[in-house]
Structure formats: C-alpha cells, structure tokens
Simulated assay, not measured.
Amino acid sequence: MRKIFSVLLLGITIFTFAFNHPALAADAGNGAKVFSANCASCHAGGKNLVQANKSLKTEDLEKYGMNSAEAIIAQVTNGKNAMPAFKARLKPEQIEDVAAYVLEQAEKGWK
C-alpha cells in the first residue's frame, strides 16, 4: 500500500511540475541561434525596427498580449501585420525554441 501511495504521489508531483512548467521542453539556447538567423534583423536586442512601440520587452509583450509561449508561437508561425509568417521556413520545434528564448530574454531585460 505504501509503495502504491509513493508511486501515485510521484506521478502527481511530476504532472504538477510539467503542467506548471510547459516551456521547459523548448530549448532557449537553440532559440537564440534561430532568433539570430531569422529574427534579429528586425528584433535585435528585443527592439522592433518596424514598429518601435511593439518591442519584445516585457512591458510591451504584456501590453499587446504576447507574454506567453503560445502567443509568440502563433505570431511567429502565422505572422501578423508587417511580420511575415515563418511556418514555411522554420520547424515547429524551432519556433517553440524561439518563443522560449524571447521570453527568457524579456525576463532578463534583453541584456
């Protein structure tokens, strides 16, 4: 009985951790490489050279509802306004990695 309880508790703990940390599957290190090759021409240092008021800094991500991996993934995948879609150029895993990188850099203030 104790063994069953321990296994059940371990499963609940792992599930809870995974649910609260879904972005851990993405690789921000790889995202940095993909960002550098595909995004930095318009978003160097977290800026936005096309629309300066819509930077990748925390305040702007929050202001425009882009402060989640899901929102960034959708934007990068499908594009919007002046931003092109990258779904034909990047694999879904690469886009997830870019989202993780953007969120990580935003938390650090793009330093």
Score class of each variant (00 low, 15 high):
Gly109Pro: 06
Ala32Val: 01
Ile12Lys: 01
Ala18Glu: 03
Asn53Gln: 10
Lys57Tyr: 11
Trp110Cys: 05
Phe19Met: 09
Met66Glu: 04
Val76Phe: 02
Gln75Thr: 15
Pro22Tyr: 09
Ala40Thr: 14
Asn78Pro: 01
Ala71Asn: 11
Leu61His: 02
Val7Gln: 02
Val34Thr: 13
Leu103Glu: 07
Asp97Asn: 14
Gly31Pro: 11
Phe17Cys: 08
Ala32Asn: 08
Phe15Asp: 03
Pro22Asn: 02
Ala52Phe: 07
Ala26Ile: 11
Ser55Trp: 09
Val98Trp: 00
Glu70Val: 07
Ile4Cys: 00
His43Ala: 13
Val102Met: 09
His21Phe: 12
Leu49His: 14
Lys80Trp: 02
Glu107Cys: 00
Leu8Val: 06
Gly79Val: 13
Lys63Phe: 00
Leu10Gly: 05
Ala99Lys: 06
Ala40Cys: 01
Lys57Met: 10
Gln105His: 08
Pro22Cys: 03
Ala82Phe: 13
Trp110Leu: 04
Asn20Gln: 11
Leu61Lys: 07
Gly65Ile: 14
Val34Trp: 01
Leu24Trp: 15
Ile73Tyr: 12
Lys3Ser: 06
Lys111Gly: 13
Leu56Tyr: 04
Leu103Val: 04
Thr58Pro: 00
Asn38Thr: 03
Val50Met: 09
Glu107His: 03
Glu70Gln: 02
Ser41Gly: 11
Met66Thr: 13
